[in-house]
Simulated assay, not measured.
Amino acid sequence: MTQPYDRALLRKHLLQTRIAGDVATPREGNLAHYRRMVAKDPDYQFGLALKAWTFDETLEMMARLCGVNPDPRYRQGSDTIDPELTIDALDAMGDRIGRAARERETVILATGHPGPLMGVYRAVEDALRAAGCAVLTPAAGWSYQVRTDSGPRMREIAYTSGVAALRADGRLKHTHDPHPMQAMLSELRDGPDLWPDLVIADHGWAGAAGEAGIDTVGFADSNDPALFAGHAEGKVAVTVPLDDGVFPEYYEPLTDYLLNRAALNA
Rank of each mutant, 00 (worst) to 15 (best):
M1N: 09
T2M: 15
T2V: 12
Q3W: 01
Q3N: 06
D6P: 09
R7S: 05
A8D: 14
L10W: 07
K12A: 06
L14F: 05
T17P: 11
T17R: 15
I19L: 08
A20S: 09
G21P: 15
A24T: 10
R27G: 03
N30K: 09
R35P: 03
M37T: 11
M37D: 02
A39L: 09
K40N: 07
L48H: 04
W53M: 07
T58G: 15
A63L: 04
N69H: 13
P70V: 06
D71P: 09
D71E: 09
Q76E: 13
G77R: 11
L85H: 08
I87Q: 13
A89M: 15
A92D: 06
A92G: 13
A101I: 01
E105W: 00
T106E: 02
L109N: 04
G112S: 06
H113L: 09
P114Y: 05
G115N: 13
L117F: 07
G119A: 05
G119L: 04
G119P: 15
R122I: 08
E125H: 04
D126A: 14
A127M: 12
A130L: 14
A131H: 12
A131K: 02
A139W: 00
A139V: 01
G141L: 08
Q145M: 13
V146A: 14
R147A: 10
S150D: 09
P152M: 10
A158M: 05
G162L: 04
A164Y: 04
Q182T: 04
Q182I: 03
M184K: 03
L185F: 02
S186L: 02
S186R: 01
S186M: 04
L188G: 05
G191K: 03
G191H: 00
D193R: 00
P196E: 00
D197Y: 00
L198W: 01
A201P: 14
A201H: 03
D202P: 10
W205Q: 10
A206V: 01
E211C: 05
G213D: 07
I214W: 02
F219H: 02
A220H: 06
S222E: 09
S222C: 11
D224P: 12
P225D: 12
F228I: 10
T239V: 12
L242S: 08
V246L: 09
F247N: 15
F247C: 11
E249D: 13
P253Y: 06
P253D: 05
L254H: 02
D256R: 10
L259H: 05
A263V: 06
N265Q: 05
A266K: 11
A266N: 09
